[in-house]
Lab assay of single mutants.
Amino acid sequence: MSIQHFRVALIPFFAAFCLPVFAHPETLVKVKDAEDQLGARVGYIELDLNSGKILESFRPEERFPMMSTFKVLLCGAVLSRVDAGQEQLGRRIHYSQNDLVEYSPVTEKHLTDGMTVRELCSAAITMSDNTAANLLLTTIGGPKELTAFLHNMGDHVTRLDRWEPELNEAIPNDERDTTMPAAMATTLRKLLTGELLTLASRQQLIDWMEADKVAGPLLRSALPAGWFIADKSGAGERGSRGIIAALGPDGKPSRIVVIYTTGSQATMDERNRQIAEIGASLIKHW
């Protein structure tokens, strides 16, 4: 067993022997301040990774656009098919120029040779490549099948209805392509620590998230040296922004954090800054 596999296998073990965790309302004060600064709703939840206990939450059962955070769930569904012998990570998928959609920095470079399922998941999570996500959605049967996968996990809230990039439209009061912070946090925890996926697939999923290259201005910008984070960000229309993450000190994750916002007129930089400040408060009061 590799060191990384050992780390993920012992996530519940280490967490069980940690000192009790206590909620700190100071972080919620910052979440509410972010709402004021952005002029928009902000949803927040913080779960203990081992027990699933909610440590703090704000608007945990209000719907927010998922945006690209759905790509972690998508690759979880792909990995479940791999575990069941219905898919192979090494299978190569070929596609054409007509398949390319807006923001496809990886797939646009491989029109000639195609990409493997493993490479597509890596591109979808680490670079948020939209064509990679659409190609992977095709392998599982489309958005409705991802929703069905989530329902089978016990998540009857999260739903995907459309493809990239239309799913980022974020129309107010439109339930399409949305989740709730509580539902997303619980589902992410199941994917990373539950028995739904094999140990190898859980490790692969967290490795992809740990290698995320496009979430630097968010929670990662607030992390002290030595902290662990595996995350996936999302951005959408109407001032929408979000991030889902597993993080913790001492090089291992111990909490799940989900943050979503929508309806702001603020710039992307300002949305990023507010999420980073929430992260800084979380870490300060850990």
Rank of each mutant, 00 (worst) to 15 (best):
T193P: 04
A246L: 12
G251F: 04
L137I: 12
L218S: 03
S104R: 09
A40Y: 13
L197F: 10
F64H: 12
E61L: 07
A211G: 04
E62V: 11
K213E: 06
S122Y: 12
K53R: 02
T198I: 01
D48E: 02
H94A: 09
R63E: 06
D269W: 10
R159W: 07
D231F: 01
S96L: 08
G226F: 13
Q265G: 11
D36G: 02
D36M: 10
L49A: 15
R92W: 12
Y95V: 00
K232N: 15
P172W: 09
L28V: 05
V42G: 01
V101L: 06
I140Y: 12
H24K: 13
D113T: 10
K284G: 05
T131P: 11
S96H: 02
E164W: 14
L136W: 01
A170R: 02
P105G: 10
M66C: 02
D174N: 05
P105W: 13
G52A: 01
L150Q: 02
L191V: 02
M67N: 09
R81I: 05
E169R: 02
S264C: 02
E169T: 02
G236P: 12
A132V: 11
I283T: 15
L196T: 09
G236M: 14
I206E: 08
D36E: 08
K252I: 04
V106F: 11
L100I: 06
G52P: 02
I206H: 11
E119D: 11
F64C: 13
R241D: 12
L111M: 08
T138L: 06
G142K: 08
I243G: 12
T147W: 13
L219E: 14
D269G: 05
L73D: 11
P143N: 05
R59M: 02
T178Q: 10
L100S: 09
T187G: 04
T138M: 15
A211M: 15
N130I: 01
L120S: 09
N98R: 07
S128Q: 07
G154R: 09
R63C: 09
A200Y: 03
E277H: 14
Q37D: 07
V82T: 06
K190P: 15
E102K: 14
S57P: 08
A84T: 11
T69D: 01
M180L: 02
H156W: 01
T178C: 10
K232E: 14
H285F: 14
A133R: 03
A183D: 06
E46K: 05
I259L: 06
G43Y: 12
L223K: 09
S254D: 01
R255D: 06
D33K: 03
N134K: 07
T147C: 12
G85K: 06
S221I: 00
G234K: 03
G85N: 04
L218E: 01
A235G: 11
G239C: 02
K32W: 02
S122K: 15
D207W: 03
T147R: 15
